[in-house]
Design a protein around this nucleic acid. Structure first.
Lengths: 183, 183
DNA sequence: GTTTACTATGCAATATATTGCATATCAATG
DNA sequence: CATTGATATGCAATATATTGCATAGTAAAC
């Protein structure tokens, strides 16, 4: 039920529509919790069914109307309680690592390519992270409490991203010593 | 369909029963791909239905009989092909980070506790990783090709684990500056 | 003026994962 | 000799996630 709590968390600061939430999940909170729009729309209906969210339709001009959700008092309480619940040990699944277990002369080149692509992606993400950090989290000790938490999540993302880049380099280095075999 | 491929990968070196696979998934490959025994048993039946695995019953004394699975030629081919498939962008979901977005005076102490627990867990895992590295991967350049891939997965685990410890310290440090509020 | 892109929401089917329970043998503990 | 724990496999129900498709209005590009 963590997606629901992630959504409520996103709604703590602003009321948002499903579409806007889906957009948001591609950045910020979505760095740590991805979700597709289908999932979000379903979850929104569930949450408002539980009265943890309120909804209202907003008429728009030049665009289809949207349904904007806001967190209710009951929602805030449920969220606050959830923070104290025991976190199930996280999933941590990555195809790439399973693929690496299958490393062989026939696929070195391909795997090196995948790693290079991931490296690129991570570079771009880090660029984004850094931009956010510089703009909003330059002095973490001075932030209001809640923002300190957000900062820490960001800091983890940055550290792990940098670490990942270093690993990519190590990996590409090692892979380059393997004789590739065409198909 | 990646669980299936993870299972076949595990069966590349040894034939194993569902129970043994489930045990294995708690270590080694399971560091990068967790799965419960229910999932594994179901997947095994699916895979042998596709003739990617063969099965035979092994009579045991002092223990219930077991069904041992081995990868077939067709399975090996499917696995080798899968390595070239496009990896869907990984999931990356962590309750703890969502919780951090909800940081407040009422839950600092709790969150600090969760981070401390995670730190402990990671220390233990790192200890395991390091033991494996020293024993089997001391000289990565000299390993046979496939083992180089396994080494790289391990290396990523180690680097990210160490990075995580450093982050925990940073986080605990920052959290300690926040005034905690009892309930 | 037709195509493409963005906003906005949704259904249905399938795939994947989790939770709880059930069964059965044997060894060791108390 | 009753309980606990390890081995060994499985069903059923629910929860969660993914994939493909459908609709519909407007704006901008060509």
């Amino acid at each position: 039920m963590a997606l629901g709590h992630a959504i409520m968390t996103a709604l703590l600061e602003d009321d948002l529509s499903g579409y806007e939430l889906a957009k948001d999940f591609e950045t910020s909170l979505g760095f740590f919790w991805q979700a597709s729009h289908q999932q979000i729309y379903q979850e929104l209906r569930k949450l408002s069914g539980k009265h943890w969210l309120s909804k209202r339709e907003v008429t728009q001009r030049g665009k289809p109307n949207k349904i904007v959700y806001g967190i209710t008092k009951a929602g805030r309480e449920a969220l606050a309680q959830w923070v104290f619940s025991t976190t199930r040990t996280q999933t941590a699944k990555d195809d790439l690592l399973v693929k690496l277990y299958n490393l062989g002369p026939g696929n070195v080149a391909h795997l090196a390519g995948e790693i290079t692509a991931r490296r690129e992606e991570m570079m771009q993400r880090l660029y984004l992270y850094e931009k956010i950090r510089r703009r909003h989290y330059a002095a973490p000790e001075l932030l209001p409490t809640r923002r300190k938490g957000v900062y820490l999540a960001l800091a983890l993302g940055i550290h792990q991203g940098e670490q990942f880049l270093a690993w990519c380099d190590e990996a590409l280095d090692l892979l380059s010593t393997i004789e590739s075999q065409g198909l």
